[in-house]
């Protein structure tokens, strides 16, 4: 390789992969495998697809394979990321790849986690535009500047890489909305067309929903779409404080 700008990757990849089949395994275990990369800088998902051809019992989610559907979030060599857009040159520069499910959520099987809690938190912030005034015959107008407020917010793909890297979400997933949910909360608060600011803010003023964020920014570091939930949380907090004093 090299000519197309990609990094040279070792031929033999040492993989350690989290396995748990509830019907077969009493406890989760790490399976050690070797994989022939042919020196190509494959994506981690390519490697998984190759492994699954050899062992069809290996389970994980995947769909678009281009980083927009958010299915294949997992913990790749210690960092949450999407398998389909993480090249080996980044995930296993030393030829060792460690794959685990996203931390903090119950494991269903192998790399598949139960995302119920994550989705529930998303639903809790009323993730839809609220504007009960009768709509005009055409679109509601919005200036490019107003629309620009939504950039960096609406692009979230709900992959859960951020929330499952957040200790506050690990400790209190029932009560802390988590970075992904709060990013969407701000997406609607920031939308010039939404009229439910007061209700949205009232729903977040308790001690847990938003205020459990301690600003450690794991969410920012782990977002595969380079979004910034911490900044969004800060924006909501400022609004809440402005509203209170």
């Amino acid at each position: 390789m090299g000519k197309d700008g990609s990094n040279v990757v070792s031929n033999k990849l040492q993989i350690s992969i989290y396995r748990y089949r509830p019907e077969h395994d009493e406890a989760p275990w790490m399976q050690d495998l070797e994989y022939e990369t042919g020196g190509r800088d494959l994506m981690v998902l390519d490697v998984l697809e190759g492994l699954r051809e050899q062992d069809p019992s290996l389970s994980y989610r995947r769909s678009c394979r281009e980083g927009v559907c958010g299915s294949d979030g997992m913990n790749i060599s210690g960092r949450n990321n999407l398998a389909c857009i993480t090249p080996l040159s980044q995930a296993a520069p030393d030829g060792r790849l460690v794959l685990r499910p996203l931390p903090g959520l119950p494991v269903v099987r192998d790399l598949v986690v139960d995302m119920t809690m994550f989705y529930r938190q998303y639903e809790s912030i009323a993730p839809y535009l609220i504007n009960d005034s009768p709509p005009p015959a055409i679109e509601r107008l919005q200036s490019p500047e107003q629309r620009a407020q939504l950039d960096g917010l609406y692009e979230c793909i709900l992959c859960a890489c951020c929330s499952t890297s957040c200790p506050s979400f690990w400790w209190n997933p029932e009560r802390f909305v988590g970075p992904a949910g709060l990013l969407q909360a701000w997406r609607f608060l920031a939308d010039s067309r939404d009229t439910a600011d007061e209700e949205r803010l009232a729903g977040l003023e308790d001690a847990f929903s938003l205020f459990r964020c301690h600003g450690i920014q794991n969410c920012v570091a782990s977002c595969p779409k380079k979004l910034n939930p911490t900044r969004a949380i800060g924006e909501i907090r400022n609004q809440l404080i402005k509203r209170a004093v």
Partner: peptide
């Protein structure tokens, strides 16, 4: 237009359309 009313974040022209 229905989609826009539902909240779809379309890009905008200077006129806001």
């Amino acid at each position: 237009f229905e989609l826009e009313h539902m909240g779809l974040p379309f890009s905008r022209t200077d006129e806001g359309r």
